[in-house]
Computed example of a mutant assay.
Amino acid sequence: MYALLFAEPVLDRDVVRVGTREGIFSSPLIRACAHGDREAIRALLIGFWPFVQAFERAIDQRVGHLPLRPLVERFGQSRVKTFFSEARDAVREMKEEEGSHALLWVAGAKELGIDLNTDHYPQLSSIENLIQASTSEDPVEFFSWLAGVEYLAEELSAYLCHAPAFTRAFPSGRWIWGEAHNAHDHHGPSHLEIDEDLARAYHPSNDPEIVGATMTANIRRCIQLFDRAATQIQDTLAQSEKVS
Rank of each mutant, 00 (worst) to 15 (best):
Y2R: 01
A3M: 13
P9T: 00
T20M: 10
S26R: 12
L29R: 04
R42N: 05
A43Q: 09
L45T: 00
I46L: 12
F51V: 06
Q53R: 14
F55M: 04
V63R: 06
L68R: 10
R69E: 14
R69L: 15
R69S: 12
V72G: 00
E73I: 07
G76C: 09
S78A: 14
V80T: 14
V80Y: 04
T82I: 10
A87D: 11
E93L: 14
H101R: 10
A102W: 03
L103W: 12
A107H: 14
D115F: 04
N117V: 12
D119M: 10
Q123C: 10
S126K: 11
Q132L: 15
S136I: 02
E137W: 07
V140F: 07
E141S: 11
W145F: 14
L146S: 05
A147G: 14
C161N: 14
P164K: 03
F166G: 08
F166R: 06
T167C: 09
A169R: 04
P171D: 02
A180W: 05
H181L: 03
A183W: 13
G188P: 06
E193Q: 11
E196Q: 13
E196Y: 07
D197H: 05
D197N: 04
L198W: 05
Y202F: 12
S205E: 08
S205L: 05
P208D: 00
I210N: 06
V211Q: 02
V211N: 03
G212D: 01
T214F: 09
A217M: 08
A217K: 12
N218D: 11
R221N: 13
I223C: 02
L225N: 04
K242I: 12
